[in-house]
């Protein structure tokens, strides 16, 4: 099969970009979408044109590196699948496929289809952890975790941090990502001591990064390769409300150690 690719080409962050259309070489329907781009790039390089830059790594749907908005949908046509596990058999002979980068102000473009998602890391630096010193942990079975809580936490923890939720949301909101992180830790007994401080810090950093707000359209959930539920956003909203009402912690009184 052959397809036409309408691909966003942009030299770097500051350059202006444009769509370019390429005719693919002969493809095999069993190729993954990324393998199709590999083949396309071989053809471009042979013709002396710079290959299309795109992000990818594990190619098995777990690392969250691959991105791409394919025909207007992050990660391509299928539900619950990342771009790297999208296959060419999902397209028809002669299709024109529009391939764009994730578009969001907090994800500045690096080149062509590659964007910089460090904003996600910075949100995590703000509070995406349970503070436990290595070696200080009690025996793992000393803190029983109800199976239901562990399972729900795992549902949230599956997030691969790809940013498709941001890419899909009409407001470029990162709420699904942040809520998955907040919920994963907030659902577990181990996460309770820092629960409200964590949600406050992470949401505030999310705001500072310039992501949009949730208007509950559900697009994020619809494109999430791990099908993470919108319910986690509600959970985060609740925790943040409590955090706001609780206010900052009281300053400890008394002097230092003797």
């Amino acid at each position: 099969m052959k397809v036409k690719l309408k691909v966003w080409r942009q030299k770097n962050r500051d350059a202006s970009g444009e769509f370019k259309t390429y005719q693919s070489p002969e493809l095999n329907p069993s190729m993954s979408f990324l393998e199709m781009l590999d083949v396309m790039n071989e053809q471009l390089a042979a013709g002396g044109e710079e290959p299309i830059a795109f992000d990818h790594d594990c190619r098995e749907g777990i690392c969250g590196t691959c991105s791409l908005v394919i025909d207007g949908k992050p990660h391509g046509p299928h539900k619950g699948v990342a771009t790297c596990q999208t296959y060419m058999r999902s397209f028809k002979e002669g299709d024109e496929i529009v391939v764009e980068p994730f578009r969001a102000h907090p994800f500045p473009l690096v080149k062509d289809l590659v964007v910089d998602r460090k904003a996600f890391d910075r949100i995590q630096h703000a509070g995406g952890f349970i503070s436990v010193r290595t070696g200080a942990a009690p025996d793992a079975n000393s803190i029983p975790v109800p199976k239901e809580a562990a399972d729900l936490a795992m549902d949230a923890a599956q997030c691969i941090g790809c940013g498709a939720c941001v890419a899909a949301c009409k407001n470029a909101s990162a709420m699904l990502f942040v809520s998955a992180k907040v919920s994963h830790l907030g659902l577990l007994p181990q996460g309770q001591p820092e629960r409200y401080r964590r949600v406050k810090a992470m949401v505030d950093q999310m705001d500072a990064e310039g992501f949009g707000n949730c208007t509950v359209t559900g697009s994020c959930e619809a494109v999430c390769p791990k099908e993470i539920s919108l319910d986690f956003i509600a959970r985060m909203n609740r925790d943040y409300l409590v955090a706001l009402l609780k206010g900052d912690a009281k300053k400890p009184s008394g002097g230092g150690a003797g």
Partner: peptide, 24 residues
């Protein structure tokens, strides 16, 4: 703020992505 978060719209043909007309 939402508009500022998505300065450039998409060109691809899929538009709704599971979002209802009401929500959009």
């Amino acid at each position: 703020k939402n508009k500022a978060a998505r300065p450039q719209p998409y060109a691809g043909k899929t538009k709704d992505l599971g979002a209802s007309v009401a929500s959009r």
